[in-house]
Design a protein around this nucleic acid. Structure first.
Lengths: 190, 190
DNA sequence: CACCTAATTAGATTACTATCTAATTAGGTT
DNA sequence: AACCTAATTAGATAGTAATCTAATTAGGTG
């Protein structure tokens, strides 16, 4: 299940008239004019709503003479309605995977081949990626005095003060009495 | 269930970032800055989305020092997600069909004239009736600490732990961080 | 108390959505 | 073929929603 289909599903259901239509169709199929009448809308507007509902596949239609009857697709409705209860589990994994190539691209863009950081990205998302990239070579659980941290950063970039500050602000590290230490990854803003 | 609550629910879920937030919170609570980082949004925008989500009651929050952690209310999420499957059918009407006199009879049978509950009915239907009878005197929207709930129940019965647990299991109330709160009547299993 | 961090609110901007009227299409009937 | 009915599309408009920046509030900590 891709997230945007789930979003589209809920977006479509987030409308009083469309919910009303679903509710009505549960009692049996109806044609457009009937729906328009019950809801007090013009046929054009009903057509619009019905199209939205068909896009997410919760209704389908059958023609009889020159009247089109709309039917509720209850199975699909149930499946989609419950989808929100399933996401989150392993989905997040997939997202991380996709992100990886994206990250590599950003890293290649901002670091020269000799491993120096050219500039600090202005865009928040990209900044986080390069901050993470650099901090990754520090050891978890180890305590670093400020001068060691400065020296470490200078391998990559001259403006160590900015990088150091960003690390703190973005929760990659914390400082206690001038001693720096990596935070557990769950705290990182990435 | 009023239709507009259902509409509001889906409208709120019809947004990529909010779905993403729900997905992330399924792994555990997160604070605002962390969400902002992961989604590449500003804290202000996260605040906006979180407010929307809280309005439909699918998340709640707890403070720790000056960081607020957001938690997913999975029960409510599940209840609301499935609500669309219930509307429209005659089902909703029929649900209310438990007779008033029938209820009164059960209440007279299990409560003594001084208002104490003699025993907890084993039969599910009767149990629901007496659970409802007792819970009816609590106030909707009010937050009750556990000891208040215990004291309240002891008016009726000594085994407050059982009653309290049944209330939760039958969705009369919900508990968040030791605070109890009535659920809207549509959620009650009766 | 002064200062800090995290969260929220206010205000502005931009983008999207629902709805209508009017025109058009698609099928069916005489 | 001419006409009818139902449905869809086009184009316009008014209302709503998402997002940002900047200012403010609410708790904690030295």
């Amino acid at each position: 299940m891709q997230i945007d289909r789930l979003v589209a599903f809920h977006k479509t259901l987030g409308d009083q008239n469309r919910i009303q239509i679903i509710s009505m169709l549960r009692h049996g199929p109806l044609h457009g004019q009937a729906i328009a009448g019950k809801l007090g809308l013009t046929p054009a507007t009903v057509s619009y709503h019905v199209t939205r509902l068909r896009e997410i596949d919760v209704i389908y239609q059958r023609r009889d003479k020159n009247t089109i009857y709309f039917h509720l697709n209850e199975k699909k409705l149930a499946y989609m309605a419950e989808a929100i209860l399933r996401i989150g589990g392993d989905d997040a994994m997939n997202k991380q995977q996709v992100d990886w190539t994206e990250k590599q691209k950003v890293i290649r863009n901002f670091f020269s081949k000799d491993g120096r950081l050219q500039t600090i990205p202005a865009q928040r998302k990209k900044k986080l990626i390069i901050l993470e990239h650099m901090v990754d070579r520090l050891e978890f659980g180890k305590k670093y005095p400020e001068k060691d941290i400065n020296a470490f950063i200078k391998q990559f970039h001259d403006d160590y003060a900015t990088i150091r500050r960003e690390w703190i602000m973005c929760h990659f590290m914390q400082r206690n009495d001038g001693i720096y230490e990596l935070n557990p990854k769950e705290m990182w803003l990435i």
